[in-house]
Design a protein around this nucleic acid. Structure first.
Lengths: 224, 224
DNA sequence: CGGTGTGAAGCCTTTCACAGCA
DNA sequence: TGCTGTGAAAGGCTTCACACCG
């Protein structure tokens, strides 16, 4: 049923969710695992096994009720309540994230943004204003931010992570191309754009065919 | 030795490469698997097994020669020659990618950029100029672009992918939050920012500890 | 009948443990 | 002696195949 959902399944739940929401927009009421597989690029057996981890939400001979499954996946992912997010480092990438439509649509609210450049301080960004990094800990604490996005140069990424952790953040998404370490109770993921290109480069030159995906399993770097 | 390197290993090679280049900068001549593990957050046994897929490049009792290993990994990843890259969709994310320092440092040259907005056409970006998407196929062909980055809205991502494939691109990195399909001979990876946050959200609320990484294994959506 | 839910098989990945070489 | 390279073990993920239910 639910005691612990496999990592690989968790990483696919948002994919199903998006497909279900798109189906709902065109008033599709029900989807079979086959149909969901078609819309997500995942194998149908995989879809069924994944969804079975959430409980028995399908109807045999019919499929899955779109609206109900949306609510169940949302609940399991914790998307049924809003999450405060802080962005540290407002370069182009930080800007892009601040204006990304997909975030508020899933309950992620950009509540604070920080930068070290005095020129940028005070500039509006989304619903907030760019603040100096010196205020990071106090503002993050006050605003109850739980997720931090690090889009700084790699040299300061670890220090920023330390401050975020100190301020009580429980999840960090690191875009800086460097390894950062956080306490075990903090969830950490990374997105590394240069690495993605290098992986593609391998499959291109080797004429191989399957470069994998970005959101598969694996172990995160943890502990301090 | 080399006939085919496991997918999981390929996705870690760029990580080792970065650590090795950093070590080289501080004039470290040799690194043990233990030391490389420390710098990358990967288990030492894993490091050795991964590197053994490239060949026997270590020295027992000593470790790996940094410079030599850099050249070997670069060669295996195909980073020993330049690759032309095109960016389609010059919003904030496209801008961020165009100015990303990590790309030219690994031999990826942004040779073309396209956008549908007439206002943006002609604006300089990096070493090139923003062109209308209508010119995509001809320019990509002429410039021998082999990698395409899709940073458009999801609604047009599939069409853009089709054009890139038509123009002869062999690898695509998709940032648009939608499934795209390409012929089997084209390597495809995706980076989905909203999905990363949703995965974090799961581990945050469940107080679980290991949210995985972005570059683990898994199958890519392929075929048309 | 159609489609879910799931044991079982197969594959891939990680980790262990140690033989063997510099 | 120290550290690599690698069989073997262990664990996890995907896919198959089908019992079973609506």
């Amino acid at each position: 049923m639910n005691p612990r959902i496999p990592e690989a399944t968790v990483s696919r739940l948002p994919v199903y969710l998006r497909a279900l929401l798109e189906a709902a927009e065109t008033h599709v009421l029900t989807l079979s695992s086959e149909a969901l597989a078609e819309r997500t690029g995942v194998n149908a057996a995989q879809v069924r096994k994944d969804l079975s981890h959430l409980g028995s939400y399908g109807t045999r001979g019919v499929g899955y009720d779109v609206e109900y499954l949306v609510s169940q996946i949302s609940r399991h992912l914790g998307l049924d309540r809003d999450r405060r997010v802080a962005i540290v480092g407002v370069g182009n990438l930080g800007q892009a994230l601040a204006h990304y439509h997909g975030f508020p649509a899933r309950g992620f609210r950009i509540s604070a943004a920080f930068d070290a450049d005095p020129e940028k301080i005070g500039q509006p960004i989304g619903d907030t204003v760019i603040r100096p990094v010196e205020e990071l800990v106090s503002v993050v604490r006050r605003e109850n931010v739980v997720i931090g996005l690090i889009t700084t140069p790699p040299a300061v990424a670890q220090e920023v992570a330390d401050r975020l952790v100190l301020a009580g953040v429980t999840s960090i998404l690191n875009f800086a191309p460097t390894l950062i370490r956080v306490p075990v109770h903090v969830a950490l993921r990374k997105v590394d754009l240069a690495i993605e290109l290098q992986i593609l480069s391998y499959y291109e030159q080797s004429s191989a065919v399957d470069p994998g995906t970005h959101d598969g399993g694996g172990l995160a770097a943890m502990g301090s």
